[in-house]
């Protein structure tokens, strides 16, 4: 006969494998605990410093890439308008294109550091204005999708973790797999043709009112919910196997409390790792979703700027998304410390 199935970690093998830290390391003196708020500040400052470096690198890389791209800047600025040597000379003088490239680059960095994103070549308006106008609809969409996706993932994983309701679990995880492997635009088109064209429940395009936000947000949220749900369920399953869950249950805790108060925090750790991925999906996904649903937003702006070689706008979008990434991953790092006290020491 083998070992009894429930014995697992409870018995002799297994639990003592971890080498115990020496006794003096384990004890934390009172004064060191009191100092914790101070020591927490240093990692935050360090992360902000790294963030600045990342921003600079992103801006520079984008600048170099656009510099190396074929085509003349003056052509882009002149566009389809009137073209003559005088006009060209005027453009060169106005934009300072006759300066050495290093000087142009440094000038660009200097302005960037002061929050000046430059002027759009095509629209002849300040980039900050162009992007600022379109930022809000995209933010609305991304935020709605993120909240919806995380909520769906939490519901699906918490409802099917552990060994209860095996049939529901099978249905949910299959659905998740389908959602993860379907491209978002397909989901969008299916939703559109079904709910908007056939039943007329939601508007087909535009950004007027809450109803117009529903389908795009759902389209963007479903793949997020699919992957996040799988990761969360895996984490929950693992946590539910731990001995401390047996202890928690032995206190008379309701299964829901075991999930929410104990297992969920453990499951969140691997999920937080996905924060960067989540941001990327929202950014990339919104470009597509905005196209499918004819919504205004950053996606539209980016697409127009890239096709028209509108360098200042493209640079602004790149720097903006790099800033977003830095922000999100810093927040994720801080979230780790918040969730897991064991990480707080170093």
């Amino acid at each position: 006969m083998g070992r009894d199935p429930a014995d697992g970690r409870g018995d002799r093998d297994g639990t003592r494998l971890r080498p115990e830290p020496p006794a003096r390391l384990r004890r934390v003196p009172r004064n060191r605990l009191r100092r914790v708020p101070g020591t927490r500040l240093r990692p935050v400052l360090r992360r902000l410093g790294t963030g600045a470096v990342v921003l600079w690198a992103a801006a520079t890389a984008a600048y170099l890439a656009l510099l190396a791209a074929p085509g003349d800047t003056v052509d882009s600025i002149v566009g389809d308008g009137a073209d003559s040597p005088q006009i060209r000379a005027q453009v060169v003088a106005e934009w300072g294109l006759d300066r050495p490239e290093v000087v142009q680059y440094l000038d660009y960095l200097w302005r960037l550091a002061h929050g000046d994103l430059g002027r759009s070549y095509l629209l002849q308006r300040p980039v900050a204005e162009v992007v600022g106008d379109q930022l809000l609809p995209t933010l609305k969409l991304a935020l709605a999708a993120a909240v919806l996706g995380v909520a769906l993932a939490l519901l699906a994983s918490a409802g099917t973790a552990g060994s209860r309701r095996p049939w529901l679990r099978r249905v949910t995880s299959t659905t998740e797999l389908v959602l993860v492997s379907t491209p978002p635009f397909l989901i969008g088109i299916v939703l559109l043709s079904l709910l908007s064209f056939r039943f007329g429940l939601f508007p087909v395009a535009g950004d007027r009112g809450f109803a117009a936000l529903v389908l795009p947000a759902v389209t963007l949220a479903l793949p997020i919910a699919g992957l996040l749900g799988q990761v969360l369920r895996d984490g929950l399953d693992r946590a539910l196997d731990e001995p401390f869950v047996v202890t928690a249950r032995s206190r008379g805790l309701h299964e829901r409390a075991v999930l929410v108060r104990h297992a969920l925090r453990h499951a969140l750790l691997p999920a937080v790792t996905l924060a960067g991925w989540l941001f990327g999906v929202l950014l990339g996904g919104s470009v597509i979703v905005e196209q499918v649903f004819g919504r205004p937003g950053l996606g539209q702006v980016t697409l127009t700027a890239v096709t028209g070689k509108d360098m200042p706008v493209v640079l602004a979008v790149v720097v903006l998304s790099a800033a977003g990434y830095v922000l999100v991953s810093t927040a994720a790092d801080l979230a780790y410390l918040l969730i897991d006290p064991r990480l707080r020491r170093s």
């Binding site: 003592r16 104990h262 925090r265 969730i339 064991r342």
Partner: peptide, 12 residues
């Protein structure tokens, strides 16, 4: 249970 390092919730 044995070994409170894993029998108490490490995050609480």
């Amino acid at each position: 249970l044995q070994d409170a390092l894993v029998s108490l919730d490490p995050l609480r």
